[in-house]
């Protein structure tokens, strides 16, 4: 067991965990943040996506010790990034309105991937959206509604 300290959703946390425990399991089991999902366990589906020091990562591939001193944002912490005490981030609102979430299991990862994409490209082209989200699999939507949600979120943040 190792003590690992990091900042998650703007709160400092220390957990005791085996150093090679997957960050995904630390989030879900130790911190009870179950928004990140396990879809494949091998970094293909992106359902476990979180932001680690601003980068989009598959938390199923990150050993806990790699999170030492890191700043992590999960789906549970995304709404306050837009404004404190805000219930929904504009990206979440757009996913709701445009039908970007169907079964919802990929949605937390997809929303974090969108957040990461829009930080990088505030006005992304369709191709940039398609490539930016290609690490997050969705079996329900065929992605079209998700593209619309991303475009809508982009237009709202930069009128």
């Amino acid at each position: 067991m190792t003590q690992i300290t990091f900042t998650i959703n703007k709160e400092k946390k220390t957990v005791e965990a085996p150093p090679m425990k997957r960050l995904l399991d630390v989030l879900r089991e130790d911190l009870h943040l179950t928004g990140a999902k396990e879809g494949c366990g091998e970094g293909e589906c992106g359902s476990c996506s979180v932001l680690l020091n601003g980068e989009l990562v598959n938390s199923c591939l990150i050993p806990a010790l790699q999170a030492e001193g890191a700043t992590i944002t999960t789906i549970e912490g995304i709404a306050p990034l837009a404004a404190p005490d805000q219930k929904l981030h504009p990206i979440q609102q757009c996913f709701l309105e445009k039908g970007g979430a169907q079964c919802g299991i990929c949605t937390p990862g997809m929303i974090l991937a969108t957040h990461h994409l829009l930080e990088k490209y505030p006005q992304p082209t369709l191709l940039q959206i398609q490539e930016g989200l290609a690490g997050n699999l969705c079996r329900c939507t065929g992605y079209t509604r998700i593209f619309e949600a991303v475009q809508s979120a982009a237009s709202q943040s930069n009128p």
Binding site: R28, A36, K37, E76, L88, E97, A101, G104, I105, P108
Partner: peptide, 21 residues
């Protein structure tokens, strides 16, 4: 018309509870 899906808010917030949660 296209109202917001009933369980949609819980889903986009990551609060929807699937069995492994």
């Amino acid at each position: 018309t296209s109202p917001i899906r009933k369980e949609g808010t819980a889903k986009v917030l990551g609060q929807a509870r699937y069995v492994d949660d």
